[in-house]
Amino acid sequence: MWKWLHPYAKPERSYQLCQTLLPWFAVLGGLSLLVGTFWGLAIAPADYQQGEAFRIIYIHVPSAILSKTLYCTMAVAAFIGLVWQVKTAFMAMVAVAPVGAMITFVSLITGAAWGKPMWGTWWEWDARLTSQLILMFLFIGVMSLYKSFEDPQQGGKAAGVMAMVGIINLPIIHYSVEWWNSLHQGATLLKMDKPSMATEMLWPLLVCIVSWALVSGAIFLLRLQNELLRREIKRPWVVALVLNNNESNNTASAVNKE
């Protein structure tokens, strides 16, 4: 693990890795997002029970799945940072957090919007929505703890500890909220997930999930690059990078003029 990771502990190498991966994530993600969304919203058949309203699942489900995945990603980055003292891991953690918070927010909004036709109310204290809300608080907690520190390195470590505390708690929170929900609501609510889904509905959903993962991956890579440049701005490799960019820009504009 250490041997494989070690070269990427260097900010310069991480930056290059981001640069290589970014086009793949961006292009594949963008394409599949277009395909999946169009397929889901326009082509897939409407649900016999919920009608057209069900189509929000093509946004809600990918965001709900991804929000937890992103929290795990953040915690893994924090763990690598804390245990192997890898500086770039903390930067990755910091880069993931706002993406995760935003996607959690999307899942909350779409969940609420789905609740209106389903339950006739914008907000229902449903187990999933409630855990999603708590998840968003956890994201915001990690982000604001990081922002509170003047020294980003110190902030990264502190936020890393909080992310670890959060990930240990996440299953407990999830379980306790489900349990609380079952106590107070019984089985009166409609279950959100259908045991079986028609294939023509399922395929676009899978495409959507993959595309959301790719797009948020691309946003993460961009944010990580930004973070790397911002934090390492005085290091020689950043200076060299900027000089190189300027040079190629200059030659490009010179060619244009001719």
Binding site: I134, F137, L138, I140, G141, S144, L145, S148, M162, V165, G166, N169, I172, I173, Y175, S176, V177, W179, W180
Partner: peptide, 17 residues
Amino acid sequence: VLLALLLVPIFIPLLIF
């Protein structure tokens, strides 16, 4: 406030049980 933001979500399972 920061302390509350960090801790209150963590204490939810305890509150529930």
